[in-house]
Simulated scan of single mutants.
Amino acid sequence: MGVLSDYFRAADDAAAIGLMAELDGGPVAVSGGRPGVDAIDLKGIEPAVTLGKLVGFVRGLAWSTDLIEQRLIWSGGDEGPWLIALDDATRDTLASITAAQSPELSARWGQIEELAWGDPLPPGELLPVIEEISALARRAQAAGDHLYCWCCL
């Protein structure tokens, strides 16, 4: 069973939770977008492990469970969906990724078991994903917004 993950930016927790009410629990990222919502769909890239490993690579640190500080701020119940607030240090780390770093990060990230599923991904396959998440983080940082992840099984 895969995890659906939409990453988006919002001014604060209240705005992110309000979005859940507006969207009847989500999803947040949809084809064609939603007016006023800056969101990306990153199926299978949950924040704790998969995104955490990318953050670790950028920071030059080994992955650990506390690498990304996250808080559950809304839940649709035991079966989900869930809304997770990510710490601003994660936002800033993702925003700091440069075009020069991206190829190496893509190659390394494509080797983790959560993404490779037995065989490493081609070195450049995750470049678009890295570009999307880092661009979202830069827009959030520039606006003084925070990053959130909507997850569902």
Rank of each mutant, 00 (worst) to 15 (best):
A99N: 13
L127A: 06
S75D: 05
E113A: 12
I130T: 02
Q101A: 07
P128V: 03
V58T: 09
A140G: 07
S75L: 04
L86D: 00
V55H: 03
V58D: 10
W63G: 05
W82G: 04
L86N: 02
A48L: 12
A62D: 15
L147M: 09
T98Y: 08
S106L: 00
A21I: 09
V37C: 03
M1C: 10
L127M: 09
L105S: 06
I73Q: 07
V49Y: 12
E104S: 11
A11Y: 06
H146Q: 15
R138G: 07
A48Q: 14
D41R: 14
W63K: 04
Q70S: 04
W150V: 08
D24Y: 05
L153G: 11
C152P: 01
R71M: 10
S31C: 03
G44D: 09
E46R: 14
S31V: 12
D87K: 03
R138A: 14
T50H: 10
S75I: 06
V55Y: 05
D12M: 07
C149Q: 10
R71L: 09
K53T: 12
I112S: 00
A14V: 13
H146W: 10
L67T: 01
A137I: 00
E113N: 08
G60K: 12
V49S: 13
L127W: 01
G110H: 07
V37I: 15
P81K: 11
P123T: 06
R71I: 04
A95V: 09
C149Y: 02
D66V: 10
G110I: 03
V30Y: 03
K53Q: 14
Q141L: 11
C152K: 12
G32T: 01
T65K: 15
L86R: 00
G76M: 05
G60T: 13
L115S: 07
V37G: 00
E79I: 13
Q101P: 07
L67Q: 02
C151R: 11
A39M: 09
D6H: 15
G26E: 02
E46P: 12
D6P: 07
V28N: 04
Y7L: 06
M20E: 01
P35W: 08
G52L: 02
E104R: 12
R71D: 15
R9Y: 04
T50G: 09
I133H: 03
D87W: 05
D119M: 13
A140M: 05
P27H: 08
P27A: 05
L126C: 06
W150T: 05
G124P: 01
P47C: 09
H146Y: 07
C151M: 15
S134P: 08
I17L: 07
Q141K: 15
R138T: 11
D119E: 13
S102V: 15
I97D: 02
P35N: 10
C149D: 12
D66Q: 12
E104T: 15
G77L: 05
L19N: 05
D41K: 11
A100R: 11
Q111Y: 06
